[in-house]
Amino acid sequence: MVNRRQWLIASGAVLGATSLMGVQKVMGKELGHMSPISFKVPANVVDSHCHIFNPVKFPYSSKRRYTPASATGEDLRKFHAAIQARFTVCVQPSVYGTDNACLLDALKQLGPDARGVAVIDKGFSGQQLDDLMGGGVVGVRINLEVGKDRNFNSAISRLEETVQTLDDRDLIIQIYAALPIIAELATRIQTQPHAVVIDHFGLAKSADGPEQEGMSSLIGLMQSRKVFVKLSGPYQISLLGPGYADTVAIGRTLVEGAPDQVIWGSDWPHTGGSERPANAKPTDVEAFRAEDEGRNFSLVKRWAPDSGLRYKLLVDNATKLFGFAAG
């Protein structure tokens, strides 16, 4: 008798029209080479941005734009043990659309030291939202970048629909959008009722420096205590190679501008490392970036040279925001 995994592979339901060899290649996310961390890691570090991919148990959406390899909760545990992180916030990746089953399964496996950020649409019922919250979800994500949506009116609509759907539930709104869009949304972000988290440095361009257009709006939102910004995925804003030294000025500006409103995230397992050819199909498996986790984590010391600021960035701010018990 053919088991479920064999049927999924044979039918292409796991990763699309992928060969058995291709599926085997994506089973598990290896840690790889890791340089020593350049600072003393405090207890109770929160990794506020990571993703779980489990295509065998939870097939990807047919509408996905890419096909990542596998990175499970067990792989995540090994990574966090290596960098001495305790708490985690798992963010629903775009390949699962609004089906949050993989996220909820991961939160169940990871236990009370994990929280989740789901993806919803305006069709979600109150009961569906309550079920997500019961499963450890503390926020919902608006992702405007996976489709490179830079339309201001679209961004307004997504934010307003999300606020309306949440219907005053105590959930964070997480926004993944380009800095100009965030700046344009500033007034609306400020006046809506939810705490807001901005992904990946607000996608400020390292090459344009701290004075670039939109940075003052972002820091103003942070100083109002309405918005938190994730210092996560330095390759998202860097034009340099590994080491990402050009992120230091942006990182320090955010930390020093609003030290109580910054949180750190690894962006594990680092999607987007492959140059996808123009004729690539969504079913072509995309390898994760080969990142030196120790070197990336050590950037924290350059963004926040003072140990007190590092503690806020790595522990205190996110512990309060996401409701972790650090005792």
Rank of each mutant, 00 (worst) to 15 (best):
D292G: 06
S217Y: 08
P259M: 02
L76A: 07
V140S: 09
Q174I: 05
K122R: 15
E211M: 09
Q6W: 12
M21G: 13
N153L: 13
V26P: 07
L179W: 01
Y60F: 15
S62V: 08
Y244H: 08
F201T: 00
Q127C: 11
Q92H: 09
A114V: 06
F39A: 00
S274Q: 14
G220C: 01
I37H: 14
K57Q: 10
N100L: 05
L321I: 11
A326T: 15
V315R: 03
N296V: 14
E213T: 14
R188Y: 15
A114Y: 04
M133L: 10
V285F: 06
Y176Q: 03
I175F: 04
V146K: 15
T88F: 06
R64P: 10
G111S: 13
M21S: 15
L313I: 07
V197D: 03
M222P: 06
D168Y: 13
I173D: 07
I173P: 14
L179S: 00
L254N: 03
W268D: 01
V229R: 04
G209M: 00
R276D: 01
S217Q: 15
I83V: 13
V45L: 06
D131I: 10
Y96S: 05
V91T: 08
V315G: 04
D105N: 15
R289P: 06
E291M: 09
K226L: 08
C50I: 04
R65I: 06
Y176G: 00
T98K: 01
F152M: 02
A85M: 10
R86F: 10
S216C: 03
L129Q: 05
R295D: 11
Q190T: 15
A278Y: 14
D105V: 04
L254Y: 04
V248W: 00
P305D: 08
S70D: 15
A278H: 14
T18Y: 02
I52Y: 08
A249V: 04
L240I: 13
S238T: 13
K57L: 01
S62K: 15
A280E: 05
A71H: 08
G97F: 03
D113A: 01
E184T: 11
G136V: 03
P277V: 10
Y60D: 03
V26G: 09
N279C: 11
V56A: 07
D170Y: 07
I37L: 13
L171R: 06
A326N: 09
Q127G: 09
M34A: 07
F228H: 12
Q164D: 11
G323A: 05
S298W: 08
T72Y: 06
S19P: 12
L309V: 10
Q128G: 07
P305W: 12
T191K: 11
T88C: 05
S206Y: 03
G241Y: 04
S238G: 08
N279D: 13
S94P: 15
A290M: 12
Y235V: 02
S206I: 02
L20Q: 15
G97C: 05
T191F: 07
L166P: 09
A177R: 11
A325L: 02
M133I: 14
P93D: 00
I156V: 14
N44M: 02
A81G: 10
D167C: 10
I173S: 09
M222N: 03
S125Q: 10
S125W: 04
T18C: 06
M27P: 08
F297L: 00
L299F: 05
